[in-house]
Design a protein around this nucleic acid. Structure first.
Lengths: 99, 99
DNA sequence: TTGACATGTCGGGAGTCTCCGACGTATTTT
DNA sequence: AAAATACGTCGGAGACTCCCGACATGTCAA
């Protein structure tokens, strides 16, 4: 999961798919990389269920399945208070200065 | 950043530090790994500013600096709607079934 | 000052990641 | 049926990750 997100190409793939489904070749054309490289990245994303593929004729439409990302959100949650607290205290200071 | 979180040992280090500062040796004792291994993980976390170290005598106290994690939250944000929508529609279905 | 202690860093081995060209497979077109 | 298209996967090269034992550095205690 975190490992799948550790690669910038895969993160960009996910962002692209957030705008709607795309074919494998279409996705590959968005990068400087070779088509096999993208195919392998898509395989990684498929393994952690972040994308699903729907064969359609000789093409293959990939679409996002963002739900597993919720796990990341859950992991992140206990830490949120740290930067939110910091933001709140910053706001408080601003508040104080205004009065 | 994402790369730093890609390792389970480093994620566990961060969770440990969320409860308060600890010395390097103390942290190392929480793992089956050798002390040098932990020292290197801490170096990675230091490089992305997720931890800070405060030398104190011959020990070194590490403490969490969670702010860079906000970047992860920001990256995640555009995807949140996907699973939140799904959760809402699930709730709607439950609501419907009850009536 | 000498010895013990807490820690960082180096060298190197085993495994993994990332990438590519080449090849195999299924589907559509001619 | 044959050629073209859209893919996936394989073999292998190069870089990187993770780990450890050994060593270096700095600090406190006797």
């Amino acid at each position: 999961m975190f490992l799948a997100l550790a690669n910038p190409v895969r993160r960009r793939l996910l962002r692209l798919l957030a705008d709607g489904p795309r074919t494998a070749g279409d996705l590959a054309n968005q990068f400087e990389l070779s088509r096999p490289a993208i195919a392998e990245h898509l395989q990684v994303l498929r393994r952690v269920a972040l994308v699903r593929d729907v064969p359609q004729g000789r093409q293959r439409h990939y679409h996002l399945n963002a739900e597993p990302l919720a796990q990341v959100g859950e992991w992140l949650h206990p830490f949120e208070r740290f930067w939110r607290e910091r933001l709140r205290s910053f706001a408080d200071v601003a508040e104080e200065e205004r009065s």
